[in-house]
Design a protein around this nucleic acid. Structure first.
Lengths: 112, 112
DNA sequence: TTTTATTATCGTATATTTACGATATATAAT
DNA sequence: ATTATATATCGTAAATATACGATAATAAAA
């Protein structure tokens, strides 16, 4: 049991699900807000603002990296993260396409 | 350890995260597509189309219900599900607002 | 070179998710 | 009334996610 069946769905739906998963924790959305607010990329400043331990923030950053939503470079003693706008816009567009698909597929009326 | 810290974030970010979580499995996105495709609400037909057991599909439907993205009524022997368009449009709009917030907060340029 | 500061990773505990078979429940059909 | 069908729920196993302290790794500062 508990075998992974995710690969049995379309590439697009897997991609949408992966992006959604990256956004499925409020800490990660908050991190994106912090990254967007400051044009200069910070890192340790995120930890200060978050109600989470440094290790946990690092783990969330890693997930956002894995999904491609942020980029990072190690810059001396500090490391620098920022939003990957290309990936982000693609995500936004894929999502709006999904909404569009769903709405045009149906008559946009609920039957129950 | 592993205490739930999700409530320490803003209501909006929690809401966005919850909606994202509902969309974070390709099976659930596929279910939404099926529901949108057929104007008449089905249920067992979903199971036929999915590479998952009936119990698992039922579980995914419950999650979509919990997030408010779909509505359901028990209609005799069968039960009837359909997309909750009001909630869905709100989700779409909240998401686009987030994208907008992030983009206007920054100069929309990555520094790394 | 030693110390200090920043961040990543490891180990670990706990919580949650995913998946299914078995079973309960409830209606329709016979 | 009995049988068949549809769906939800229970129990459970395995996988993932969340969270943190401790520690490693790395570079700047002293």
């Amino acid at each position: 049991m508990a075998v992974n069946k995710k690969t049995e769905f379309t590439e697009l739906d897997q991609k949408l699900a992966d992006m959604s998963k990256a956004m499925s924790h409020p800490a990660r959305i908050a991190i994106l807000r912090v990254l967007a607010e400051r044009n200069t990329c910070i890192c340790g400043e995120i930890v200060e603002v978050m109600p989470l331990a440094q290790a946990t923030v690092s783990q969330h950053l890693k997930e956002l990296m894995g999904a491609g939503l942020i980029k990072g470079t190690i810059d001396g003693k500090k490391s620098c993260y920022c939003i990957n706008w290309e990936a982000f816009k693609e995500f936004n567009s894929d999502f709006n396409t999904l909404f569009g698909d769903l709405q045009t597929a149906s008559s946009n009326q609920s039957c129950c």
